[in-house]
Design a protein around this nucleic acid. Structure first.
Lengths: 235, 235
DNA sequence: CGTGCGCTTGACTTTTTTCAATAAAGGTGG
DNA sequence: CCACCTTTATTGAAAAAAGTCAAGCGCACG
């Protein structure tokens, strides 16, 4: 929440290139960037908590942030993991003014905070920004739809298979994958607990679908993995 | 998809009063309403299917519509149930052009169909419409967040208790409730199956939380119902 | 070099689903 | 208005999926 000269300048430089502001007149971006505040958070820091009143929303500049729900007993469901350029907490600005979930830095991160009012008035004035916002929300809704489907209609092995295939899509080698989050985090993202994930990984490995070497996973049988992800095949 | 004179007139009258168009200049609403098409669907009719290309979106005029996902084995997860004035299928207009789920009429219904292009250009021109759209999407995202939380972090009795309390909020008597959907539908909405729902209702009834008379349910112990919904108490 | 945290594994419990059979309810046509 | 038939709801018994509790391992970090 500090506004030293150097971070402020960076904020401006960052804001202009954010997807959210694509297509906006540069002078307008500059104006809103001037009310934006940069916030540096160490790994593990809670950025906001569910129920907290939302004075604005954030965009990740560097690092990674997870947004998650917590059950009464302490089980955690990760809703998204956000990287550079991605906004979070916007829903609270537009629907109810309380954050609907918790947010925590997974790594030391730099964030931009945009106060609520500035954004609202800017959106009212700039259809391009409104369209960007709508696109962001629509895409997120689409992902949530998939998450609900997974949680309700698929079992853990199917979700895991789908995630591995998703990773493969954006990855290095042709048939290998590196987990970019801890297995505990992955469990929470898949809507399960570390013990179950561990067992499923072991079973999939033993059944010849994959080979696990720590965070490095070799996809041994793409066809069957896809069948698993669809729910056609079973472990 | 017919455009006889009478349905068209109705469409116009209807559109002007839709929440989505609140705050818009009436002449603009008239313009878009002229490209809107009224569609009448009988109970049970499939309105669109997942993956189908979306040329536009719908608003419910009368009746009720459910939007749902289907698993490979045929299990169903209801995403929302929409009543008069509520839009559905908009996400497909803004993110990818395919419907992410199925939609079916729960009752004989009248729908308004808005072609994609008209809406997009109108939104670009009218910030008020953009804000309405953003508000709609944001509210839906918030509900989905709650749905994900329920599915992942709560068990069936807690979800049912929460639903009953939600119904009580918008209901007749002080401590009684009428299910407005079939129990099969309710099961799908809660992310379970009719058998499980039936059993949970029986247990809750036998434990003195509620009294079930068909679709008429008396809430016998609000405190414990709330504790159940929170996950604090257990059946 | 030890302490701690993340990960794994085993044995057990709980929750939910599956399969099957029956009962009740609702709508339709005679 | 009733008989029939389809849909919807309930119940039991058994299986499966996932979660809990507890213990042990290994690696990283201080």
């Amino acid at each position: 929440m500090n506004r030293e000269s150097q971070p402020e300048r960076r904020a401006w430089l960052g804001a202009a290139t954010l997807p959210l502001f694509r297509g906006l007149p540069p002078d307008q971006v500059e104006r809103i960037a001037q009310v934006a505040v940069e916030r540096k958070v160490p790994k593990g820091e809670i950025i906001f908590e569910e129920g907290e009143s939302a004075e604005g929303f954030y965009v990740v500049l560097t690092g990674r942030v997870k947004v998650y729900k917590l059950s009464w007993e302490g089980k955690e469901q990760t809703l998204h993991i956000l990287g550079p350029g991605e906004p979070f907490g916007e829903v609270a600005v537009f629907a109810g003014e309380r954050f609907p979930a918790h947010a925590q830095a997974l790594e030391p991160s730099r964030l931009l905070f945009f106060p609520r009012e500035g954004l609202l008035s800017l959106i009212r004035r700039h259809p391009a920004l409104a369209m960007n916002m709508i696109g962001t929300l629509a895409r997120r809704l689409r992902r949530f739809t998939a998450l609900v489907e997974d949680l309700s209609l698929k079992e853990v092995p199917a979700r895991l298979a789908a995630y591995l295939l998703y990773l493969k899509g954006r990855s290095h080698g042709p048939e290998e994958v590196f987990l970019d989050i801890s297995k505990g985090q992955l469990a929470s993202l898949l809507g399960t607990i570390p013990e179950t994930l561990s067992r499923v990984l072991a079973k999939m490995s033993q059944a010849g679908f994959i080979e696990v070497h720590g965070a490095h996973i070799v996809l041994r049988d793409l066809e069957r993995l896809e069948a698993l992800a669809e729910g056609v095949e079973r472990l």
